[in-house]
Amino acid sequence: MASSHFKKKSNTKEEIPTASLPDIIFMLLIFFMVTTVLRETTVQVRTLLPKAEALTKIDQKRLVTYIYIGPRKLEDNRIGETGVQIDDALVEDLGNIRTIMYRKLIEQPKLIVSIKSDRQSEMGVLMDVQQELREAGTLRVNYSTKRDVG
């Protein structure tokens, strides 16, 4: 009785159907392609970030606006004067920051400004930028730093 029962079972196909395998993989592929966010801005200033230990992570990426401060990148790997960049464009007049940031704050009231500043840039520029941020009312800032290893 038992053996006949086994035989009956073994009649079914043993192979897993692999026809849908490419589809599954393609689904995964499309998922990763959609979720991957490529860096959309080209940074025109050098930002070698300082290192620190007391770090906090910013999980909500959509709240963040980046301000880059550092020496301008010129041709032939030379660097020029200190520049401030928000999103795609260099800010020529620092007085414009307050209007730029104010508009962003209206769109996103929980805005966090992440300042990516070069190690060697002077505090004067940062102070000016911070004064502008205070004028705009965007008070949450984050000094972007790398983890100090060892």
Binding site: F32, I58, T145
Partner: peptide, 27 residues
């Protein structure tokens, strides 16, 4: 498809921004 998948997996960098958070004093 696997090759493509692995390529995207490897090239994707989910860089989490870390830093020192501060709150500026209001104006």
């Amino acid at each position: 498809a696997f090759l493509l998948l692995i390529f995207f997996l490897v090239t994707t960098t989910i860089d989490v921004d870390t830093g020192i958070g501060m709150v500026l004093p209001p104006k």
